[in-house]
Design a protein around this nucleic acid. Structure first.
Lengths: 225, 225
DNA sequence: CAGCGGCGTCAAGGTGCCGTCAAGATCTCT
DNA sequence: AGAGATCTTGACGGCACCTTGACGCCGCTG
C-alpha cells in the first residue's frame, strides 16, 4: 500500500484530502504542523508527502529542507500564493511539484501519481547509517571506515545490523541475544560482551573509550551516530 | 552539459525559451512538430523535454506516449488549456509536470531543475560493469577479458549476472541459490562453491587470491569492481 | 572497606564452512 | 545416436569463526 503524509493546518482541507486519498486505497497520515510533519515522516516513512505551505509553526520551505536532509520521497507543495518567487523557493528547496490553490482534486491526484511513478523508477536508495567514524550500508551489507572496507563475520554483522536499524535507540541484551542467537540464548550475555568487543576493535577509533557502540550498564547497547 | 529538447510550433515562444535556457548553460534543441520531436529526441537523447501541447500534427499526449515508449527522460508539458481533464490526461500519459500558460520563466526553470534533480537520482541504465580485470556487458550477455571473449556456461552466466546487477552489494547464499537454482536449492551452497570457483578461474587474474569475486564467509558473495 | 555483580579482554579448542578436484549423470547439439 | 559440454555430487584438507572458560577491573552496596 502506498503511504502518503498530508501536512496541513487546515483540518477541513486535510480531512477532504485524506478521504479522497483513502478512497483510492492510499494509506494516509495527517500532520497539523511542521514539527509534527518531520516527526511523523521519520516514523511512517511515507512514499509521498503533500505539504501545505501555510503552516503555523515552521516555514514550509524549512519543512521541505528538513525532509530532504534524509529522504528523497516526493514532496508535493500546496499553496495559496501564486507568487513565482515562492514557487522557485519551494522547488529549489527540494519539492517535486507546486500546486496553487484552488486546485482540482483530479489534478492533484494525477500529479501525485506522476510523482509516485517517477519515484518508483529510482531505486530504493541505500539505507546508509553514517557515524563520525564509520559508515554502514545496510543494503550492501558493508561497513567502511576511512574509505576502506571493514570485514565483519556473520555474527558481528548481524549484531551491528540490529543496532544500526535503530540508531540511537537502546536495545536490551535480551532483544539482541534473541535476534542474533535465538530465544534459547537470552541469558548468554557473555556473547554480547565478546562481540561488542570485537566490533569496537574493528570500528571505534579508541576501542577502550567507545563513542558509538555504547554500553548502558544493566540494560543493553546503543549505536550512537 | 544538460541537454533539453524544446517542442513548440510557435517559433517565438520556442526562441524565447531557447535563449533563456542557453543563457543558463543548457544545450538546447528545438523541434517544431510532434514528428520532429520524436525523431530529434531519439537522436539527441535529451536529459529533459519541454513539450507544448498545441502541436499541428500529432496530439500532445501522443507525443508523450511516444517518448515514454523508450525513454524515461523528464517531460514538462506546456499548455494554454486550464482544463483539469487535459492535465490528468497528459500526466497519466507519462508527463512529469504540466505548466499552464501564461507562465513565468523563473517558475519554468525551477520546475525544470526539480525534474532534472529527480531524474539524476535514477541511475543511468548501465549495461556495462567494468572491473580492473574484465568487463561484463549485461545487455549483450558477454564477458571480455583483455579484449577477448570469455565463454561462460549458462549457469555461470546466470550467477555472474546476478552479482553484476548490484556491483559491490553482498548477495546472500540464499538469494543467489534461489535465483539461479530455484527455491528448493536454497541450502545447496556446494553449488555456489563450485561455480564461484569456475568463475574465478575464468575471470580472476589470480584465482586463488580473488579480487573481484569476493567471499564473505558465512554470508555470501560480492562482485567488487 | 569488603563483597559482588556486571563488563571487557584474552586465548584455546573444536567445528563448520570454504575451496578444490574429480567422477558420474545429464543435457544439448549435430 | 553419439560426442562433447555442462551440471551434480561426493570427498577432503585447511582455515576462519564461534563458543567457552578464566581473569581483572570497575562501580555499587551493605
Amino acid at each position: 500500500m502506498t503511504r502518503v503524509l498530508i501536512v496541513d493546518d487546515d483540518p477541513g482541507l486535510a480531512r477532504a484530502l485524506a478521504i479522497n486519498l483513502r478512497a483510492r486505497k492510499y494509506d494516509v497520515d495527517v500532520a497539523g504542523s511542521g514539527a509534527d510533519a518531520l516527526k511523523l515522516a521519520a516514523r511512517t516513512q511515507p512514499d509521498a508527502v503533500i505539504l501545505d505551505l501555510g503552516l503555523p509553526d515552521i516555514d514550509g520551505t524549512e519543512v521541505v529542507a528538513g525532509l530532504r536532509g534524509w529522504t528523497t520521497t516526493p514532496i508535493l507543495v500546496l499553496s495559496a500564493r501564486q507568487d513565482q518567487a515562492d514557487k522557485v523557493a519551494a522547488l529549489d528547496a527540494g519539492a517535486d511539484d507546486y500546486i496553487t490553490k484552488p486546485f482540482g482534486m483530479d489534478e492533484l491526484l494525477a500529479r501525485l501519481r506522476a510523482a509516485l511513478r517517477r519515484a518508483a523508477r529510482s531505486p530504493v536508495e541505500a539505507p546508509l547509517v553514517v557515524t563520525a567514524s564509520f559508515t554502514i550500508d545496510l543494503a550492501a551489507k558493508r561497513v567502511t571506515r576511512d574509505g576502506k572496507d571493514i570485514r565483519l563475520t556473520p555474527t558481528e554483522w548481524h549484531l551491528l545490523e540490529l543496532l544500526a536499524r535503530s540508531p540511537g535507540r537502546l536495545l536490551t541484551q535480551r532483544e539482541l541475544l534473541r535476534e542474533v542467537w535465538g530465544p534459547a540464548a537470552e541469558r548468554e550475555s557473555q556473547y554480547l560482551r565478546v562481540y561488542i568487543g570485537t566490533l569496537r576493535r574493528k570500528l571505534e577509533p579508541a576501542p577502550s573509550a567507545p563513542r558509538h557502540l555504547i554500553t548502558e550498564p544493566g540494560m543493553g547497547y546503543r549505536l550512537e551516530r
